[in-house]
Design a protein around this nucleic acid. Structure first.
Lengths: 172, 172
DNA sequence: CGGAGATACTTAACATGTTAAGTGAATGCG
DNA sequence: CGCATTCACTTAACATGTTAAGTATCTCCG
């Protein structure tokens, strides 16, 4: 077992010496991926016991906090792409955890809300979930956690409107 | 439209008032997810133009830096689960971007290495990729970037060996 | 030597990520 | 009004994430 802790200086890696590139394992995307995985690993078992995936849980939480919402709004809140959300809502509806009804004013839109059962399920998961979050906060440090989230927000901000690319040129 | 900026006190939301929970959108997993997505959004178009997904690119980079590796080692380096890696290697091999040969000493293991074509493809992608990384570094700030990665690493460390749970008790 | 148990992968099955296309309902404009 | 556009979703298709099984090897101990 022993985990083998990343091995910094890597020693070897003789051939393929052309494109240096940052040590791959230290790239920003990898750092973010690993950090997130380390966090999620804590929550998944508990969610799983309640028959929920991470994304389903995100949707329930989002719905519990905004009462009812259109699909598009929900996608933005839960940070899911439309197609994923569409599938998940279909399943959650089949399990009676959410309810859906098309808006009268605009037949295209549908309002989604959490059901009584959904609320009940959330109530049964929330305590454990909160406890885990508290443990994480305690281990990492509340202050550092706040700082980290601050930086993550800034990173997001600094990249906003970059990938859009064709913001006002080339019409493809 | 108007975005509706999170709305702290949430005003409404009369029902479901039981479990407060942190404002969902500010949870650590969400912060990490959004930050990572903001970053990856920059790279995906370029990778896509070269017919590569994010994961395939991770594997090629990993292979380029370690010459040859067993599947398990590669999985650890590229931070992919075995099953994902298995599928991706099958595809990359079919595209002649990697090569595989079973180890003589242990028929179970197979050594994977990047092919000449693979190296060529990497060379064609790397410049753009590096340019994007440089732009991100410049926008966010090199120093802050280093700090952020430092914190992410610490977060990972502080959670290491927590999720393992049954470390030395309950045999399920 | 032989077979139980551990290893290193690979398959399978189901859920989501990601992009493109499809569908039905609103809108805008001539 | 008529119809091309735009909208809000949903489907489709392919790739990966995630957990559980399956397969061939290898190890080790009796």
């Amino acid at each position: 077992m022993t985990k083998r802790p990343a091995d910094p200086t890597n020693g070897s890696a003789p051939a393929a010496r052309q494109v240096p590139m940052r040590d791959f394992s230290r790239s920003l995307p990898m750092s973010l991926l690993r950090a997130r995985e380390a966090v999620m690993r804590q929550f998944r078992p508990s969610l799983r016991e309640h028959g929920l995936t991470e994304q389903q849980w995100r949707i329930l939480r989002a719905l519990a906090s905004i009462e009812a919402a259109e699909v598009t709004e929900l996608a933005r809140t839960a940070f899911l792409l439309g197609p994923s959300l569409s599938r998940i809502l279909r399943d959650l509806e089949a399990r009676n955890l959410i309810e859906r009804k098309t808006a009268k004013a605009d037949q295209r839109r549908s309002m989604v809300s959490i059901s009584k059962e959904g609320v009940k399920l959330m109530a049964s998961v929330a305590p454990t979930s909160e406890a885990i979050y508290a443990e994480i906060t305690s281990r990492f440090g509340a202050r550092k956690l706040a700082e980290l989230q601050e930086m993550l927000g800034e990173l997001e901000q600094s990249l906003a409107g970059l990938g859009a690319g064709n913001e006002a040129s080339a019409e493809e």
